[in-house]
Each structure stands twice: as C-alpha cells, then as structure tokens.
Design a protein around this nucleic acid. Structure first.
Length: 402
DNA sequence: ATGCTAATAT
DNA sequence: TATATTAGCA
C-alpha cells in the first residue's frame, strides 16, 4: 500500500530533513511567515497542507462522529492554502512579499486554485472538501429528518403506516446519547407536534386541561441510530412542526420496504412513558388489578392504545412475576425489579447521562393530575410522582443507574 | 375488555 | 437466538 501514497502524503519523516513536529496551524503559519524565501515557504506550506489532508483522509471514516475535527481540519487546510497561495503569488512578485499580511483569521474563503499546476491533488482536495461538506450536510439533514419526519427513512425500516400519524416524537435528549454519536446534535428540534388524537380514544378527553401527552410511535428508524423513542409532548405546546417537512433531499428512498402487512410500528416505551405506566398501575392497585383501559386513561398519553397498554402490562406482569415484588415490605430490593425493567427502556438504554445528579431533566412532563399540580416549575428534577417515591418501588429506578 | 398464544420484527 | 411487541382468538 505504501507505494500508493504520493510522496507528499508519505508520513515518513525521513523524507524531510527535519523531524516533523506537529504544530498548530497558527504556530506553523507564524513560523512560515518568518521564512524569507518564498519558495521555501511554498514548500513548507505545501507540505503542511499535505499532512492536513492526509489526516483528513484518516478521519474521514469518522466524520460523522467527528464533525468538529473535520471542521477544524478543513479550516486549517483552508488557512494554509490561502497562505500558500499568497506565497506563490508573491513568488511571482517577490517585491510585494513584505506587504502581505499574514492573516490567519480568514479561514472562510478558500481558494482552491492551486498552482501546483493542476495536479490531481487539486482535485482531490476539492472533492474531498465537497465530500466532507456533503457528508456534514447529510448528517444534519439526516438528523433533521429524524427529528421532524421520521417517515423518511433511511435504510431499512419497516413499513410506515404512518399515514395518519404525524410523525413525531420528541426524544429525550438525556437518554438518547448513544455512543454512536449524534450526541451533540441539537435537540432543540424536538418536535412536539400538535397532537392529534388519531384514534379518537375516549379517555383523556375527559380530563381537564391537560397536558396530555402526545405520543406517537416512531415511524421508522434508521438501522443505526434508529431508536428514538417517543417522548411525551404536551399537547398544548405543540404547534410547531409544520416546518419539518424537511424532506431533505436525502437519499432516503433507498430502501423503503413497506411491508404489505401493515404492522404497527413498535411502541417505544420511553422511561417517562413507563414511569407513567407504573404510576398508573399503582393508582389502580397494582399490576394485577389494573386493567389496560384504566391504565391508559390514567396515563393520559395521547395516541397510546389499549392494546399497547395491554401488551406492556402483560410484559410488566411477566417481569414482575419473575422477580417477586417484595413491594411494600421494607425489604424491598430495589435492585432487581428496577433493573429488570430498566432494560426495557431500551430506548434510552445507553442513557447514561453523565449528570448523575438530578438525573432526569427529561421532559416536561407533568401529570395532568390535578392531584399533583404543584411542581410545575421545578418539575424537572424530582418527578412529581409521589407514589413512586413513596412506594419504594421496585422498578423504576429509572432515574439513574449510577 | 381482558388474558393468552402465535407470529413477527428487532 | 432471544426478546419484545403486535395480532388474533376465546
């Protein structure tokens, strides 16, 4: 392989008389500026550019994860190239050399025109840059889609029956950070969309004002990061989202394999959702006593269906059965149960958010409950769930695993 | 409507 | 392969 590498890219330090010592772009430029010989400057700059490009190639594979690195690198390359150009120019007109201000700040515009004589490197560069740009874009849009219109798919997702369900869910930033990377993605985009109660389920309507939750099941997922769970969003707040039709020109059309069988999208039970569920369960007297319908009503989650609740309840029962809930007894083991269901929160599975403290900045989710209307403001930290805390419950230690 | 099982997707 | 969730049936 080495043979393929053009001399400029060769890392072998021996090529250069001196050992290559990494310098920051600023340092490097400053150093170069001290060089008198224009041709030497060009040489150095060129070399530096090569190195930068070489590194760029290396991290190319991780550009998604390292957008900032790419950016910095790109920026550095632009700066150096700019300088390179100046030098080359000045080489032509040596006289002006001293007048040339070395300004490093102007990274913005890059002129690709290379004087190298139109070597292919030039092309490479350019394409590389473009490439990078596009990838970033991709990334963004991708994400965007994800936020706003999951419907667009990405690779393989299952069917979208989504038709009547506006896409959306907001995600829990907290729980979402997956190692995969989009950690830094801006979540501001959380879409709470206007809730629609698709199913016209009776339930929640009766309750008073409600911050009922709108919860939609995720339309689709990317094979990779897919899992975004739906969060809860308050109905009232919604009203945005329209814009999201960002059907960015992604190549989403890729694999939309819609299955003929319109199978429902899996309901993602986010931690919050689950909390509500458990909460409701308690109000109703336990998993065994509660009925799906009642639970659903108590939960007041928009879009949640009886079937879903039923299913979840079933699973819940199974799990609790496995690990005998020593519930109220003082001996409760927070452990098992908690852990048990934690797993279920796959949605947020990797949600180990560093901030162990309050642990749940999740969303603004208030129980409608007039019962506990208090904590609106500080709502975040401690959940209002009185029950939950008092109960020693089992299960949800959802807040933090630390 | 609820509970259980089979089917199916992840 | 195991598990989670959905679909169907009683």
């Amino acid at each position: 392989m080495g043979s393929l590498i053009p001399p400029e890219l060769n890392l072998d330090c021996s090529l250069t008389s001196e050992t290559w010592v990494p310098k920051t772009t600023g340092e490097f430029l400053a150093e170069v500026s001290r060089i008198q010989s224009a041709s030497e400057k060009v040489l150095k700059l060129d070399h530096y550019v090569s190195r930068l490009q070489d590194e760029m190639k290396k991290i190319d594979a991780f550009k998604r994860e390292l957008p900032l690195c790419m950016l910095l690198l790109n920026d550095a390359i632009a700066r150096v190239k700019e300088e390179l150009m100046r030098c080359k120019k000045s080489k032509a007109e040596p006289v002006l050399e001293e007048f040339i201000p070395l300004k490093k700040s102007s990274a913005g515009e890059e002129k690709d025109e290379k004087i190298e004589g139109g070597k292919e490197e030039d092309i490479v560069n350019r394409s590389e840059k473009m490439n990078w740009m596009s990838s970033v874009q991709l990334w963004n849009s991708d994400y965007d889609c994800y936020l706003s219109d999951p419907k667009l798919d990405s690779n393989k997702k299952r069917k979208e029956e989504a038709v009547n369900r506006p896409a959306m869910d907001d995600l829990f930033p907290s729980s979402k950070n997956r190692a995969t990377g989009r950690a830094f993605a801006p979540f501001k985009g959380c879409a709470n969309f206007p809730v629609v109660s698709p199913m016209g389920k009776e339930g929640r309507d009766e309750l008073p004002g409600p911050p009922s939750l709108s919860l939609r099941t995720p339309e689709i997922k990317n094979s990779k990061d897919e899992i975004y769970c739906s969060g809860l969003s308050s109905k009232s707040s919604s009203s945005r989202s329209g814009s999201s039709s960002a059907t960015n020109g992604q190549s989403n059309s890729k694999t939309v394999h819609q299955q003929n069988t319109a199978r429902k999208q899996r309901r993602c039970w986010s931690p919050e959702l689950h909390r509500r569920f458990v909460n409701a369960l308690q109000h109703l007297g336990g998993a065994q006593a509660a009925t799906p319908k009642q639970i659903r009503e108590l939960m007041q989650v928009d879009g949640l269906t009886n079937d879903e609740v039923k299913s979840h309840l079933q699973k819940y029962r199974l799990h609790t059965r496995k690990v005998p809930p020593t519930t109220s007894t003082s001996t409760n083991q927070p452990v098992l149960l908690g852990g048990l269901w934690m797993s279920q929160e796959q949605c947020g599975e990797s949600s180990k958010r560093s901030n162990s403290q309050s642990g749940s900045p999740q969303g603004p989710l208030h129980l409608p409950g007039s019962s506990r209307g208090t904590s609106i403001t500080g709502g975040d930290s401690m959940e209002d769930e009185d029950d939950e805390k008092s109960e020693s419950h089992n299960y949800l230690s959802g807040r933090d695993d630390v």
